[in-house]
């Protein structure tokens, strides 16, 4: 189902800074996200991963620098979706949460129920469709939110540590969904600090430290030939401050 929405890729950041008061959250980011294998944003807590994802979603705007989505300075209502680290469930059933997202992209009304069922089935929650979403466990809510994000049929899917609160079985399941989405052409941009997960999923890696991009490389290069001492230390499992 192709829509008239123009492509958001490549997504480019050119000298992007974000300052809140006197704090510099992001410092002179130059970055281009192109179609292809998943881009994993890694780095210690507080390095600016979440903020980078929010910028890409245009939930915040840079205080300096330029951004462009497919060459356009304003992303508009593009085919992007985001899965927050702590997603917020609407006060409705799990199915109604997914259906809501379908309604927002103008999905035909009579097809929504079937599509909702299919999406919930994909994230393994078909049995819980009628349950109030807020009464689900953290992991289940995470997966409802993933179904809600997939409902937008995104060209870019931004994920903020989607498996942080999941057990290994659920993590495997979610990674499988992400991999499938990536294979069907969705550009995955995902924050993670689980190096095992990065190895399993990443096509390329953006390594961030203290609001700056410290290193950007293919996954293979990043793990085998880190070019900065910080990256090397991070991969070894040392503390990077």
């Amino acid at each position: 189902m192709m829509r008239a929405t123009p492509s958001d890729l490549p997504l480019a950041l050119d000298g992007v800074c974000l300052r809140i008061g006197s704090t510099t959250v992001l410092d002179r980011l130059d970055l281009t996200i192109t179609p292809g294998a998943p881009t994993l944003v890694v780095g210690p807590n507080g390095s600016g991963k979440t903020t980078l994802l929010r910028l890409c979603m245009q939930l915040v705007r840079p205080t300096e620098g330029r951004m462009s989505w497919g060459g356009r300075a304003d992303a508009g209502q593009g085919r992007r979706a985001i899965l927050f680290q702590k997603p917020v469930m609407l006060r409705r059933s799990a199915a109604a949460n997914v259906c809501y997202a379908l309604a927002q992209i103008g999905y035909p009304r009579h097809l929504r129920a079937a599509c909702t069922h299919e999406l919930l089935d994909r994230v393994g929650l078909a049995d819980l469709a009628a349950r109030p979403a807020r009464h689900l466990s953290g992991g289940e809510q995470q997966r409802v939110a993933l179904a809600r994000a997939l409902a937008r049929q995104p060209e870019i899917l931004l994920l903020d540590e989607p498996t942080a609160s999941l057990d290994p079985a659920a993590t495997l399941h979610v990674e499988e969904i992400i991999r499938t989405a990536a294979q069907s052409g969705t550009k995955i941009v995902m924050a993670s600090h689980d190096l095992g997960q990065v190895r399993r999923l990443a096509g390329d890696v953006v390594f961030m430290v203290r609001g700056r991009v410290c290193e950007q490389a293919t996954a293979v290069d990043f793990f085998d030939r880190p070019s900065t001492p910080e990256a090397a230390a991070f991969i070894r499992g040392d503390l990077v401050l």
Binding site: M57, L59, Q77, R80, A81, I82, F84, P87, V88, L90, Y100, A101, Q104, I105, R148, R152
Partner: peptide, 15 residues
């Protein structure tokens, strides 16, 4: 509570 999710889903002001 809802701001980010609704903005990310591109919900109109009336919506």
């Amino acid at each position: 509570e809802y701001r980010d999710e609704l903005t990310a889903m591109g919900v109109s002001p009336a919506g």
